Computed example of a mutant assay.
Amino acid sequence: MVHDELAELLGAFLAAVSFRRGERPGYGRIHDLFLPEGLLIRNSGPAPEVTTVAQFIEPRQATVDSGALTEFEEVETAARTEVFGQVAHRFSAYAKRGVLDGVPFAGAGMISTQCVLTPLGWRISSMAWDDERPGLTVAEIEMPDSARAA
């Protein structure tokens, strides 16, 4: 079923960025999940930060390589998926936690992921996200109970 394939695609992305203390993240696997021209857009600051997959990975890998980021986990907590033919959109709530410079952190937010069906299967064409902050919480977003992620 297409919805399951899209859940697996986003799950593979989250698994690639997540890692336990003493492990290494699988950032290299992200390339296979996106179209070659795919974009990642962080929109939780004053202006959107638009990056290619390589530009997304580079500073994160440097933070891990320096020893500053020693663990990170991001999980989907709820989602709504819409599909029309060979295009799809998955709107996901997420929770994240990690340790940066020895200090634990945690947060949550929403990811909007656009996907297209290719000869190789579903791929992400773009992903945009925003984090919770004062006045903006995931709890304000209505997600159907049947769409809660496992």
Rank of each mutant, 00 (worst) to 15 (best):
D32Q: 15
L35S: 06
M127A: 13
L120D: 12
A78F: 03
V64E: 10
G38D: 14
I124A: 00
P134H: 12
G135R: 05
E73Q: 15
A62H: 02
V116R: 14
V103P: 01
L33P: 06
A108G: 15
R21P: 00
W122K: 03
G22P: 04
R90G: 00
V17S: 10
A15N: 05
F56Q: 12
G67N: 10
L39S: 07
A15W: 01
P59E: 12
V87G: 10
A79L: 06
M127G: 03
T51L: 09
A88R: 06
V64I: 08
L117N: 02
L35H: 09
S66F: 04
Q86E: 14
E73K: 15
G11Q: 01
H89S: 06
E58C: 04
L69E: 07
F34T: 01
R133Q: 09
R148Y: 09
P119N: 12
E23A: 13
H89K: 06
T52P: 08
P59N: 13
E49Y: 05
A15E: 10
D131V: 04
F105I: 00
F91N: 07
T51Q: 13
P144R: 15
G102K: 12
G11M: 04
I111R: 12
P104D: 07
R24F: 05
T52I: 06
V83F: 13
G26A: 09
M110W: 01
L69N: 13
L39Y: 00
A147G: 01
M127K: 09
P59W: 14
R21A: 14
G109A: 10
V50R: 00
R148F: 10
F56A: 09
S18I: 03
G28T: 02
G28Q: 09
A47R: 02
K96Y: 06
H31L: 08
A78Y: 05
T77K: 13
D131C: 08
D32C: 04
S126N: 09
Q55F: 03
G11E: 01
